[in-house]
Simulated assay, not measured.
Amino acid sequence: MNIGVFLSAADLSEQYTEPAREFGKLLGAGGHTLVWGGSDVGLMKVLADSVQEAGGRLVGVSVEFLQAKARAGADEMIVTPDLARRKAELLRLSDALVVMVGGTGTLDEATEILELKKHGLHAKPVVLLNSAGFYDGLELQLRRMDAEGFLPLPLSQLVYVAQDGADALAYLQEQL
Rank of each mutant, 00 (worst) to 15 (best):
G42K: 09
S13Y: 00
A68V: 07
A168L: 00
T106F: 14
D95A: 06
H32C: 05
A84H: 14
P19V: 00
S13T: 07
Q15M: 04
K118N: 10
L129T: 00
L58W: 05
L43M: 13
D49R: 04
L7I: 02
G105H: 13
S50N: 13
M1E: 09
K25A: 06
A110G: 10
G37I: 04
S13Q: 08
E64K: 15
E174T: 14
S62H: 07
M1V: 13
E22Q: 12
G103Y: 15
T104V: 15
S62K: 01
G31E: 02
F65K: 13
S50T: 08
P154A: 15
S156N: 13
D40I: 00
L12W: 02
T106A: 12
R92P: 02
L176T: 10
V159K: 06
H119V: 12
G133A: 07
P125S: 08
L128C: 10
A123P: 02
F134W: 13
E22P: 00
E148C: 09
G42N: 05
R85F: 07
A54K: 11
V35K: 01
A70G: 11
I3D: 01
A54E: 05
G102E: 12
S131D: 04
K45H: 10
V161M: 14
T106Q: 14
R143E: 08
R143F: 12
L158C: 14
T33A: 04
A54I: 06
A74H: 04
A166I: 12
F65G: 08
V99Y: 10
G42W: 09
A9R: 00
R86T: 11
D167L: 10
L90W: 04
A110T: 11
P81M: 05
G149M: 08
A162P: 11
P125W: 02
A132K: 06
D11L: 05
G60F: 01
A166M: 14
M77W: 03
R86P: 06
L47N: 02
L66C: 09
K124Y: 11
D164V: 08
V41P: 03
G105N: 11
V161P: 06
K87S: 12
T17A: 00
D11Q: 09
A123Q: 13
L142I: 03
A166Y: 09
F23R: 02
L58D: 03
Q141H: 14
P19A: 06
P19N: 02
G24K: 03
V159D: 08
Y16D: 01
A110V: 12
A168S: 10
V99K: 08
V63S: 05
E115W: 14
L138H: 06
S50A: 15
R143H: 15
A9Q: 03
D95T: 04
L58P: 04
N2R: 15
S13F: 02
L153V: 15
Q163R: 15
V159L: 09
